[in-house]
Design a protein around this nucleic acid. Structure first.
Lengths: 210, 210
DNA sequence: ACCTGAACACCGTTCAAGT
DNA sequence: ACCTGAACACCGTTCAAGT
């Protein structure tokens, strides 16, 4: 009747779990993916990995610390995604690069909704706890900043600092991704969400152009 | 030592609480405002009102239903805020009206962060539970839609449906408000947040203009 | 060094019982 | 009609103890 006790088919003889930290992170993300943000609890995460719930505290100070680690991982992955999206597109094609980054941003959110929600959901890292997370956030926004610097150098944009140009772009990308994930904008399909995103982003780029 | 037991100075002699539903809603919002979204629990909310925790179920089916009611209230308030912001501005001044609506949108988020976070935070109302909430969301977005219809009639905008124009505007407003509340964009003051918002919104309006 | 078991003070939800 | 008290199956966190 109770399927909880015998959850793990291979009962993993007692040993030092190769990389428990990583296993816990993966399990946490998996839990949110599969059963929603509310299903994520430290105890359930530990259960999934097959370890006593108190063991979690050997690797994370508390629940927030685990969430912060998920968020950090997310920002790092988002950065990679955006960078990879423009590999092979010459730096002089700034607008095309921005469009690809925008698509990569949305794709990341749609494919990793759990990460995305943790990244922007509750305000973890208030007061500068988790400096590694702050750093990952800065790095992601830095990618847009750099791109805008290049565009400004080319004289593509209106009189606005590269930083503000980047923030404008990020604001739109986050707004759209967030509304799609929150089902406030209903997309019939991922493909449709992507096309609609192009439709919405184009006016902003037009407005930022000189 | 324990301040919990004697929390209510005026112990409200046993009676039928004039409007327990409303009292619970206010207490819930107050709790989130004062001590963060994590502090919101049904039991703490009931305690604040001075009622047994089980009494909550007389008025709300479950915790989600209470949150949905908070969100609904939020969308209704947001609609009022946007409507009031343009009272007295003639309908032919569409761009000015949109700018005022944008400011009202941000102001609502900054002044009612708890409401805002619940409205866009977790995805309540999935699968069309809480039709009153869906209706309140539609009404809020309808305000922008109507404004864009009027603007399109005046020939102000590029070839884009009023619906999509409204969504573009909403996307930017939500993106900015959400990033400010999540501290991803750091505003030195509410005043600064407002000025920066104007700076970011202007390019979008420029891009939407014909 | 890393993990366990038991304990503490909480949750959301249910339900028989009171007025 | 509206609320209470007790119960159930959970939480996050702590800590002494085991290997």
């Amino acid at each position: 009747v109770s399927q909880r006790k015998s959850a793990s088919p291979k009962p993993r003889a007692s040993y030092h779990h190769g990389d428990l930290r990583r296993a816990l992170l993966d399990a946490a993300v998996g839990l949110i993916d599969e059963r929603g943000p509310d299903a994520f609890t430290l105890r359930e995460t530990a259960r999934k990995v097959g370890v006593n719930h108190a063991a979690v505290y050997r690797h994370f100070e508390d629940k927030s610390a685990l969430l912060a680690a998920v968020a950090e991982q997310g920002f790092v992955a988002l950065s990679s995604r955006m960078r990879e999206a423009v590999v092979g597109i010459p730096s002089r094609h700034t607008l095309e690069r921005l469009r690809e980054m925008g698509l990569a941003y949305l794709a990341f959110g749609v494919e990793s909704p759990s990460h995305y929600r943790v990244m922007f959901g509750e305000r973890i890292d208030d007061g500068g706890r988790f400096p590694a997370l702050s750093q990952a956030v800065r790095e992601a926004s830095g990618i847009l900043h750099e791109e805008m610097k290049e565009g400004a150098r080319q004289g593509l944009f209106i009189a606005m600092s590269p930083r503000d140009l980047g923030v404008a772009f990020w604001t739109m990308a986050h707004g759209y991704t967030s509304l799609v994930l929150g089902r406030k904008i209903r997309a019939k399909s991922p493909k449709h969400a992507e096309e609609y995103w192009s439709v919405l982003l184009a006016p902003l780029l037009r407005g930022l152009a000189r």
